[in-house]
Each structure stands twice: as C-alpha cells, then as structure tokens.
Design a binder for these strands. Structure first.
Length: 236
DNA sequence: ATCCCGAGGG
DNA sequence: CCCTCTGGAT
C-alpha cells in the first residue's frame, strides 16, 4: 500500500497528492499566522522599496537587509535619487549584505531603467520585471505578490527548494521544475502564501543542516521524516 | 558550471 | 573551519 494519496506501486510516486498538500498548508498557516505578507505589520507598500529590498535579499538573511534599509531609503527614497547615486555610496550601504558590488550596480541600473523605460514606476507584469537587472524569476514572483497582490507563479528560493524536496512536493532539482510541480499541487489563491509559509517553516524548524523533526507539526506528512523513521524502525 | 561576496551559526 | 542565508548573470 502506498504511503501517498492515490499511491500504490512504485515505492514513491513522483509527487504527492493534493489532499496531503492541503493538510500541510492548513497546518503551516495555523503554525505561522503572521508569515503571510498580507498579515505582516510594518511592511512597506511602496513597490519601489519592495523591488529594491527583494533584489538585495539574494543569498542574505532578511535580518541583514532590515539593518540597511533605513539608511538606504533615507538617502535614496525613489528611483530618481538612486539612479543618480554614486556607485561607491551605494556599495558602502549594502556592503554587509554580500555580493555588494553586483547588488549596488543592479539596484542603481534597475532604478535607472525604471526611469527610462517605465516612467519611474515599478512594472506589474512578469515580462517587464524580468528585464530589470538583478531580477530573475524568483524576485519577480515576490515583487508581483508583495507589491501588486498578483501571482503568476510561485517564488522558489533556497528554502522552498529544500523543503519541497524534503517534504516530497517535488523531485525536480531545478527551480523551474519545482515551481511547475508546486503550481500543479497548490490552489492558486495560495500561490503567494506558500512561499512565505515554507520560508517561515524553513527558518524555524526545517533548517538546512539539522532539521528539528521532533518539533515539526507536519512530520507525519513529510517524506523525509517518514523515510527516516522507516529506516530506524527497520534497524530495530 | 562558476562567479559574485559578507556575516552568522554550529 | 565549513555551511548557509528569501539568486542572478555569465
């Protein structure tokens, strides 16, 4: 008997069923009530700030980004001032985030492109967002959701990638494959929240190195945990 | 596949 | 010391 919905033959279906995914999402939403962007307090609603902060967040903790944003936007509050800034003064502010040269260049050029190509406004279409330097599919999905409340896809970051693999939501190793699997599994109205929920869970419980499965509220639905406990059982 | 890059955790 | 953190461009 298969362990997953509709299961049976091969040991593990490629992807688990939607029923189990809904259970997981329900538990995560109850566990992390403040995780969704829409419910977060003190969040920026300015699309320009959301864009810049999301570009800067690559390979960095959000905590680190929080520490530089006040100074950054106090000196460069809009596309015009950022586009005109000295590259060195931007580098100095974002230095602690890592990749500081690339990030400084990206946000200045992005600001410049907003001015020249998009009338100083952050575009609200995927195709246009992807034209901005430093903006890939993940960043575009986040900006679309957080700034405009729209979801054309699901943002796959390092947490989403790790958890999707562990839980058994996707067996793909590429972000596009994972996004495609998640889009099939997750109801569209939750496409925006799923990323925030998996990130929250990835930070607190399902960490990269030593996942705290004993504290995990979805362990009984997780392939990684179930496989591990199978192994332990068979060794006893 | 590799580079960009710094800070914090274990 | 090594790994990881809301990736993207080449």
């Amino acid at each position: 008997m298969g362990r997953f919905d509709g299961g049976s033959n091969p040991p593990y279906p490629i992807i688990m069923g939607t029923a189990r995914v809904r259970k997981i999402l329900k538990i995560l939403r109850r566990t992390y009530p403040g995780a969704s962007w829409g419910k977060r307090k003190g969040r920026t609603t300015d699309p320009f700030q959301i864009l810049i902060l999301t570009i800067l967040s690559a390979q960095t903790t959000d905590n680190a980004v929080d520490r530089v944003k006040e100074r950054l936007f106090s000196e460069f509050p809009d596309p015009a001032s950022l586009a005109a800034a000295q590259i060195g003064s931007i580098e100095e502010i974002v230095h602690s985030l890592g990749f500081f040269r690339a990030k400084a260049r990206h946000i200045r050029e992005a600001a410049s492109m907003l001015q020249e190509r998009f009338r100083g406004e952050v575009p609200s279409r995927m195709e246009e967002l992807l034209q901005l330097p430093g903006v890939g599919r993940k960043t575009a999905n986040i900006v679309l959701h957080h700034a405009f409340g729209r979801c054309e896809g699901i943002a796959v970051d390092t947490h989403v990638k790790r958890l999707a693999g562990r839980i058994g939501l996707s067996d793909s190793s590429s972000q596009s494959g994972i996004e495609r699997d998640l889009m099939k599994l997750v109801p569209r109205r939750l496409w925006g929240d799923i990323t925030d929920l998996l990130i929250a869970h990835g930070r607190r419980i399902c960490t990269a190195r030593q996942p705290r499965c004993p504290e995990c509220p979805i362990a009984h639905l997780c392939r990684y945990y179930l496989d591990a406990s199978d192994k332990v059982r068979s060794e006893e």
